[in-house]
């Protein structure tokens, strides 16, 4: 297991609003013997803003990081779904289009043709560590959590670059949670968009999308949503409006990172701190599920 070594790309959110995601990710990696080396002097991937307004920039920003990764040689591990998506698309395009590669090379002043793999942590958990090993690591089975998995857009689309087993009905996160003892509820809205990129600018639109997701999650019998993307989690937490809008949810519903669940199941020390830092407080649920005391 300790064979797993990666160049680690933390991504901006993990040192900002999604610190709990970054910290829990690093903690579970350490606990499972996944060796991470932080990409030196990494920069932002440009996220949807670069993608939506400047095509070459959207390739060149991740290109700078890919060039750095090329120098280290190891595969890259990413935890943020948006960073993962931008990084992979950028890599695919650079490797497939030599003209674009040269343009990017000129812009960043380094060779961006990184041929190693760009991996998402969920992919590594499910396909490298493996569900059997994860099950063995579980000290506190997460019974009492009735979760729906939320993949959002960037873990599954475009399917050509994504690792999930299906673009419309992925099960990677489902199976991951099942291994931890979570009761995974059948849910048809796993990959519906939450409108993250419009969260600040068109709050009205985003609230509809988000509250629809929560309504459907409540209908499915879930008491929490579990995700693998800081953009989704931030958006779902910020724009949740219990009791309002046409899609009405009745109670606040916690949104958790899959790494937090693993840390909890492995009884890693930081779990409580991370859970307490969520905008929608998951502690009442944790207490109710007898996973934590008050």
């Amino acid at each position: 297991m300790s064979e797993l070594r990666f160049t680690y790309y933390p991504g901006c959110s993990q040192s900002g609003s999604a610190e709990e995601y970054g910290d829990s990710s690093e903690a579970v990696c350490q606990a499972l013997g996944i060796e991470l080396t932080e990409l030196p002097d990494w920069s932002c991937c440009g996220a949807s803003s670069a993608h939506m307004t400047n095509d070459v920039l959207s390739v060149a920003l991740p290109g700078r990081d890919l060039a750095a990764a090329k120098r280290l040689g190891q595969d890259v591990l990413v935890v943020c779904a948006a960073c993962y998506s931008r990084m992979k698309i950028s890599q695919e395009r650079i490797l497939a289009d030599e003209e674009l590669a040269r343009e990017v090379e000129a812009a960043i002043g380094a060779d961006p043709r990184f041929a190693g793999k760009v991996r998402h942590l969920l992919d590594v958990m499910v396909n490298d560590i493996g569900l059997a090993t994860l099950k063995e690591e579980v000290l506190l089975p997460l019974e009492g959590l009735k979760a729906v998995p939320y993949y959002g857009c960037l873990l599954v689309r475009p399917p050509e670059v994504c690792f999930c087993d299906s673009v419309e009905n992925p099960t990677d996160l489902d199976r991951f949670m099942e291994a931890l003892g979570v009761e995974v509820m059948p849910w048809s809205f796993k990959t519906d968009c939450c409108g993250g990129s419009l969260s600040l600018s068109r709050t009205d639109v985003v609230e509809k999308l988000v509250n629809k997701l929560f309504t459907r999650a409540e209908e499915a019998g879930a008491n929490c949503i579990v995700a693998a993307c800081p953009m989704c989690v931030a958006n779902l937490e910020m724009r949740q409006r219990p009791g309002k809008l046409s899609f009405k949810i009745n109670h606040p519903m916690p949104v958790l990172y899959f790494t937090e669940l693993l840390a909890l199941a492995m009884t890693l020390p930081g779990a409580r701190k991370w859970l307490e830092s969520h905008i929608i407080d998951p502690m009442p649920l944790m207490v109710q599920a007898k996973l934590m005391s008050v």
Binding site: S43, N54, V56, A60, R64, A106, A107, I108, G109
Partner: peptide, 11 residues
Amino acid sequence: SVRRIFKETDK
């Protein structure tokens, strides 16, 4: 190096 990227890709 980051600013250079913006400069180079600014059309």
